[in-house]
Structure formats: structure tokens, C-alpha cells
Amino acid sequence: MNKHLLSAADLSRDDAVAILDTAAELSRVTDRAVKKLPTLRGRTVVNLFFEDSTRTRISFEAAAKRLSADVITFSAKGSSVSKGESLKDTALTLEAMGADAVIVRHGASGAPHRLAHSGWIDGVVVNAGDGTHEHPTQALLDAYTLRHHLAGGTGALEGRRVVIVGDVLHSRVARSNVLLLHTLGAEVTLVAPPTLMPVGVDTWPCTVSYDLDEALPGADAVMMLRVQAERMNAAYFPTSNEYSRRYGLDVRRAGLLAHDGIVLHPGPMNRGMEITAEVADGPRSVIVEQVTNGVHVRMAVLYLLLGAAEVDTAVAHEEAGE
């Protein structure tokens, strides 16, 4: 496994399955009275959030705390970050505090990559969403949720068909999901109006469609991406109504899915825009479950990355007798 988790492309199939398997074991800890594990006692995990994202921040905080790490949270609002302190100076501060892992959310694509490769810090860097680039732990929790429902909770996702719908152009979730789901053997179809498809999407490991009704029949899962109504002001689509009619998920469309097909949404949802309330709260929806799974997947990521990073020498220590 790579030292950092910056992109879903950093993960091999074995890496991804190892994370999902570890998360599955860790999920069982949630069922017992003492939910905390001592694994990362004495390690410092910093949540560095240049962009507001309460749900992702809380999810990482919960994950780190359940592993007994010391958690420090830097949020943009009210900190030196909002007073114009540079990424570099913030990083140097964290380094001085001895951060073992830095979880970074930033509005600029590539900021976590920059942090990991600039030499400013030594710790493990986990991308918690950067600009319109990637959000690999979201993809992992989506894969975990898909695997739980579609593959009996083990192995990969060979042959499963997943449709991702919405503002692909501006979506870090879509980028990471296409990469990871492809790595896990799923077949991904992206659906959006052509204006919300990135240039060069034809080179991505997925198929592309402009027609939701054509893409949905028989699919095992559909993932709806948040579409901001402001996009219509930049002429990406004419009106919210037209968007909903052509690309929104309603009960009729959800019924086109395979018999046990599920509906995902990374949140926060725009009810009435990309998804109707009936579908969001309906029997196929696994949206609330995604949140729970997020904590387990992030625990697994922290455990595996910090565990890998701290082995100084690859001494094949004899297992027997211990």
C-alpha cells in the first residue's frame, strides 16, 4: 500500500479489498459496549479542514478516536487558515506538533498531493476531498456499502453494474468512484448532460451516457451526485426543472434497477433536484448506512496506513511463539 491515500488510483485491487475486509471486522466493534480500540494510542491524527464539511470531519474524528489516537482538528473558520496563513506554514506547524497522520480537506485540487510531496511534513496524508479532484475514502465507503449489499460483504465487485449520475464535471466523488469501482471489477456508467461531463471522460475506465432511462435498466446500483442549482446560472443546464426531468431519480426510474438494486448518495442531498424524497427514504436507499460505513472504512484506512508507515525496517520477524 502507498504511504499516502491521495487518489483512489493509489489503491491496487488487493489494497482496496484489504481495506474493505479490515473495515468489515472493525464494524463488529460497533456492536459491543466498549467501542474503542487501543491500536493508535499515542499517535496524533490531525484533521486539517480548509473547507467546511461537517460530516466528513466528524466521520474522520470518530474513526481516529475509536482507535484511541489523539485528534487535533483545524477548521478553516476562526483559525489562522482563514487569516491567510499559507498551506505551507500550516503544514510546518503540524509537523512541529508531531502529526503522524494529516487528513486534509481543501478547495484546491492537488493540495493533499502537494502536502505529501513537498517535504513540508513527514506524516501520512489522507485526502478527505480536494477541489474537483478526488475523495478516495468516500469511494471506499461507497464500495463497502455496495459490497455489503451486492456481494455478500466479501471479495470485490466483479461484474456488478453501477450507474453514477449528475455533476461529474465538478465531482471528486465521481472521479474516485470510477477509479475504485473499476479496480474492484465493477462496470461503471456515468450519466450526465454533456455540459457536466469532463473533457476527456471518454478515456476514463467507464462508459458514458447522456440518457438516464437508457442506463438504469438492470443496474445493480445507482449513485446520485449532488447538483447545485447555481450551475444553471453558468449555463450548464437551462433550469432545475429540466434537470430533474432528465436526470433526477424518482420512483419510476428507481424501479428500472435490478430486483435488489440499491440507491446511494454521498450527501448532502438536494431533495427534489437530483432525487425525490420517496426514493431517498425508500426501501432501496442505503444512504444512511453509507454514513455508518464511513467511520469503519476510515478506521481501516488510518490503521493500515499508520501501521504501514511506522515499520522502520521490513524485518520479517518470526511469528511463531508469539
Partner: peptide, 18 residues
């Protein structure tokens, strides 16, 4: 596995069932 005191010596290992 999650209770070991040698994470920094041996690194993360796959988990087994409890």
C-alpha cells in the same frame, strides 16, 4: 491484532474474526 503494542515495529496486519 488491534490490541498489540508492536504496531510501530511490525506494522498493520490483517484482522481476524472475534
Amino acid at each position: 491484532t488491534m490490541y498489540r503494542d508492536d504496531l510501530s515495529l511490525r506494522g498493520a496486519r490483517p484482522l481476524h474474526a472475534t
